[in-house]
Design a protein around this nucleic acid. Structure first.
Lengths: 203, 203
DNA sequence: ACCTGAACACCGTTCAAGT
DNA sequence: ACCTGAACACCGTTCAAGT
């Protein structure tokens, strides 16, 4: 009797939204295609009309995460076009804050949950775009004598790796309370960045 | 007719062994308790006599990984007791090599697969012991003027985070081929370490 | 103490069928 | 084109029962 409740309009994005919600509520372990479908109000096989498999939905969620990260990075860094050191500091802080505020999305973006990223062009593209932005900031810092002369790509990987390593170790629970109780995350970030930055320390 | 083939002796360790094998062959996605049991030649519910749940087996595998890492670290570093800078270099290289040679164990150890690490005392202990070793090396480096004066714990987190970040980004597929084709992993490691080390650069 | 086999609730994925 | 429902193979976990 009740006519089949087809999902209005854009099921694809509704599924991505539902996925992000579940992710932030139950973590990566609680993310299943069937739950996502139920939350979007469709049958468990409906998602397959829009995503080839679970990996494909995960790719879409990750891509969304990288888009958001890029937007935040750009917004935080752009105002300081004439001050590369400040750009580096603001950019670093945005990355750390993004990781803290979107734990599970961050986890999905970087912890190898997505297995064949190469198969998802939108993912590859926005990922590349983010890294390019870092390279640009690094290049500006080198020109301003804030970072040492070197190929900007390897310097960018070093800066990125430094931030990524510290925040990942913290988020995944690999840093002891001895450290977490003694230093704030901002202190750790500043300390690490100041190992690389030349001249007046960041603060 | 065929009498029940009870597993000889040490099923617990046999299960850990089987888990590590499956992990290295099929990756973390292929690791299931039922497969582990089958590989050890017991029924799918036998593991529950030795592990409370899947997490508990994962904790045991991670603990094994940390023990191995500690042994390799100790073996590589001990010969250079009088040369802190060389200790730092050898230790860093061991960490990177361990990650490359034991991708999936490394992944299980650090990528948040284990959810309540606090519940596994052996895990916490060997994890702490590893970090303490790093702190010791860092302290020696500071005394020798190889690293800047600072609380050794935060300096250790910085060094560890730097290595961990770069190798994790590479392993999880987040570093573009533009970089991977241009620099060797050893070059990246040396470059990163040389941002922190004072005096004559590592090579 | 150590292990088995049936059972349950949950997955991802496929596919014929419906509108 | 978009969605449903049954079906299959696979999970983790529990539990009564066997030695």
């Amino acid at each position: 009797m009740p006519s089949p409740k087809y999902h209005h309009g854009d099921l694809k994005n509704a599924l991505i939204e539902a996925g992000i919600k579940i992710l932030s509520k139950e973590g990566v372990g609680g993310l299943s295609l069937r739950k996502v479908a139920k939350r979007a109000g469709v049958s468990h096989s409906a998602p397959y009309a829009h995503f080839t498999d679970k990996q494909s939905l995960i790719a879409a969620i990750s891509t969304e995460g990288f888009k958001q990260l890029y937007a935040e990075l750009d917004a935080a860094v752009s105002p300081y076009a004439s001050d590369p050191k400040q750009q580096l500091l603001e950019g670093a802080w945005v990355y750390v804050q993004f990781a803290l505020n979107n734990r599970d999305t961050f986890h999905i973006m970087f912890s190898g949950i997505l297995e064949k990223e190469k198969d998802y062009p939108a993912f590859v593209e926005i990922s590349r775009k983010n890294f390019e932005r870092v390279v640009d900031i690094v290049r500006a810092c080198q020109d301003a004598g804030v970072l040492r002369p070197a190929p900007p790509e390897i310097m960018a990987l070093t800066v990125w790796g430094q931030l990524h390593g510290i925040i990942s170790l913290i988020l995944e629970g690999n840093v002891s309370h001895v450290i977490l109780d003694r230093f704030s995350i901002r202190e750790m970030m500043l300390f690490a960045m100041n190992q690389m930055v030349l001249g007046k320390p960041l603060s």
